[in-house]
């Protein structure tokens, strides 16, 4: 796995963001540097938001905070939360799927169609609908701490698609269960639990790993979508002041919040919403690289060319034989007609 370049590249992208996030906070504290305007030759040439330049690679936001700093500070929340949602979802869905596929096989049909109805509810919408009471700040402030809210959000987002993933695994397990080696194990007296642990799980390990990667990617996207709806990871700070209300703000610097609170500036200062979305895209890309690398390490590609060549020579030999036979037959016919 560690020899696959794809896996290593993907892993280093994620590791760079995570490590960078903690190091940044450790060195510069948890507030990014703030510059109100740039001086050039004694005159102010540009005020916040500053467009990207050498000093600020990703520009600065409307209050003069460095975008790159904000993104680095927020990386840990977004990446860790997405990974955690995936882990939790798989931890719940895999055992459930196995139970559904083996012990409760009689009920699998109708449970499948119940879970199937989730396919008609857009995931983002469902997540937004369910998470609003958790994340939207009530009039008199939050009663929960930020870590509690992040925890609750992770748990809820993990639970949302558990039915779909569990049914997927159950169907896969049910397919495998009819294979000969499982039947053989059964005849030898293996119990259901042993079959799950010793036969079904090792057979499906790769599929489960890929499924995990997909869940993480999906979670990144849903975070971004929720950001658009002003529902940020760890809660949305809402100002209820009727006169000078600030727009809804994210409490941490996580990426969804950075995107959600700035996408109105797309035409004026495109780097504000584009930078977080690019970072999210990079995160998703890293996960898909890791998945591809993992798969390649598990089933290395056979040298196709050599096999093809070998096959070709056999075909060629057959053809040669056929031609010879035909010639012989024709010659025989000719001699017979001559007679």
């Amino acid at each position: 796995m560690w020899k696959q370049p794809y896996f290593v590249i993907g892993f280093s992208i994620l590791a760079f963001f995570l490590a960078g996030s903690f190091v940044y906070e450790w060195i510069w504290g948890n507030v990014p540097r703030q510059v109100y305007y740039i001086m050039e030759g004694g005159r102010a040439v540009e005020g916040a938001p500053i467009s990207p330049n050498w000093q600020f690679p990703l520009g600065s936001d409307q209050y003069g905070y460095d975008m790159l700093g904000k993104l680095m500070l927020g990386a840990k929340y977004t990446i860790l939360a997405a990974l955690a949602v995936g882990v939790l979802r798989m931890l719940i869905a895999v055992p459930l799927g196995y139970i559904l596929g083996t012990y409760l096989d009689k009920h699998r049909k109708w449970i499948s169609s119940l879970a199937d109805s989730m396919h008609y509810i857009p995931l983002t919408l469902f997540a937004a609908f369910v998470l609003t009471p958790v994340l939207w700040m009530p009039q008199d402030g939050f009663t929960t701490t930020i870590w509690e809210r992040i925890g609750v959000q992770v748990v809820i987002m993990a639970l949302l698609t558990v039915p779909i993933v569990a049914v997927l695994i159950a169907n896969e397990a049910a397919l495998l269960r009819d294979k000969e080696f499982i039947l053989a194990a059964k005849t030898l007296g293996a119990g259901r639990f042993r079959i799950i642990r010793k036969h079904l799980y090792p057979q499906m390990r790769e599929k489960i790993a890929v499924l995990y990667g997909q869940q993480v990617m999906e979670t990144f996207i849903v975070f971004a979508h929720l950001g658009l709806l002003n529902l940020f990871l760890g809660g949305t700070k809402v100002s209820y002041d009727p006169m000078f209300g600030d727009p809804p703000m994210s409490i941490s610097y996580e990426w969804a919040g950075l995107f959600g609170s700035t996408f109105r500036y797309l035409q004026g200062a495109p780097w504000l919403p584009l930078a977080p979305v690019l970072f999210i895209a990079l995160g998703i890309f890293a996960v898909s690289l890791m998945m591809e690398g993992y798969l390649r390490s598990k089933n290395p590609k056979v040298k196709k060319k050599r096999i093809a060549a070998a096959k070709d020579s056999v075909v060629e030999w057959n053809r040669e034989q056929l031609r010879e036979g035909m010639v012989r037959l024709k010659a025989k016919e000719m001699t017979e007609t001559e007679k």
């Binding site: 971004a224 797309l266 998703i284 898909s288």
Partner: peptide, 18 residues
């Protein structure tokens, strides 16, 4: 295609608008 799939929809929409 596999790697193109990892582009978020938001990015496509924003780039189109820009």
């Amino acid at each position: 295609l596999y790697f193109l799939e990892s582009i978020p929809d938001l990015l496509i929409i924003m780039l189109a608008q820009l």
